[in-house]
Design a protein around this nucleic acid. Structure first.
Lengths: 166, 166
DNA sequence: CTATATGCAAAACGTTTGCATCCCT
DNA sequence: AGGGATGCAAACGTTTTGCATATAG
């Protein structure tokens, strides 16, 4: 996982290139977002807002919202939905990629990489004469046996798994 | 593609089993949703509402909303998001399944089936000790050459392709 | 200094629900 | 007749914006 300091650096560079300002709010939000310790793996804007607020109560929701958008533009954050209605974000490592498996039992979001699938996706796009620029894939399933605590302990979303969308 | 009449029949049966009523609104909404002629392939609740309203101006938005939920329960509709914030629905053929490729140039939503990917998804779930119950996969890409009118003519979403979510 | 960013509060959006009335079964 | 369904309008939760003020460069 990318270190918070690296992410901050990448953001600072990005902002510089764009003629935008590197404020202390943006630094803090980025640090919290990439904090390896207590960070939630897929925070919503509000989740992140609350965590940031614990560090600096003067930061507004809109700033978190706008900074998250900036992080996405900088390639540092990835917006996704796991079935609930809020958009969630996950730290993005330039170059790496993984998809998700959601446990419908406990709401845990497991991550996996599967090169073979990516290759086939390319093939599909190719078949249509397209170049792939991005994709989203979320699997939903249930553990065959009991919900393994070691796995589901990793769950970070609230237990509600009512797929309203996809 | 399933015929509107078949879908209506399936819905009627489903409603009967559940002790629910088969109203003329539900019939009309289902017919419009499955209309092979002018139907949009992935209407949002509002899209469908407008189309239904053209046939019967007295139908309310809430009825369309609730009927769509019913269609999902009956296995006749599939909710998905293609990057915009509204949930979109597509007629579901029991037993069949396809995924989507969104043209970032014109917003067209292309459909494809790829058994090999499905198989690999099962394998992934298996690796985690999970049984797959569902999945969502959307590819985003651009045509290598010009946007082929024959393909993009199929586009049904508005041209806005600003992935806010996934 | 000036352009950009912030924080607040309010607007916008899509979705969902309460309720009086209506209508299938 | 009676329980479910409808339509309206209002409630919701999340996302987005306007604007006066503060701040980085």
């Amino acid at each position: 996982m990318i270190k918070a300091a690296d992410a901050v650096k990448i953001l600072a560079d990005f902002l510089g290139e764009q003629g935008l300002k590197f404020t202390h709010q943006r630094r803090l939000i980025t640090e919290v977002f990439f904090d390896p310790e207590a960070r939630q793996e897929h925070p919503s804007t509000e989740d992140l807002y609350l965590r940031v607020r614990a560090q600096d109560p003067r930061i507004g929701y809109a700033t978190v919202y706008r900074t998250l958008k900036l992080l996405v533009d900088a390639g540092l954050a990835n917006p996704t939905r796991f079935g609930d209605k809020q958009v969630r974000f996950e730290p993005e490592i330039p170059g790496e990629h993984h998809d998700h498996l959601v446990c419908e039992e406990c709401g845990a979001v497991l991550e996996f990489e599967e090169g073979a699938i990516e290759a086939l996706q390319e093939a599909v796009a190719d078949r249509f004469g397209f170049t792939l620029s991005d994709h989203r894939m979320v699997l939903y399933g249930r553990p065959k046996g009991d919900c393994d605590p070691a796995i589901c302990k990793r769950g970070d979303t609230t237990t509600r798994v009512s797929r309203t969308d996809g």
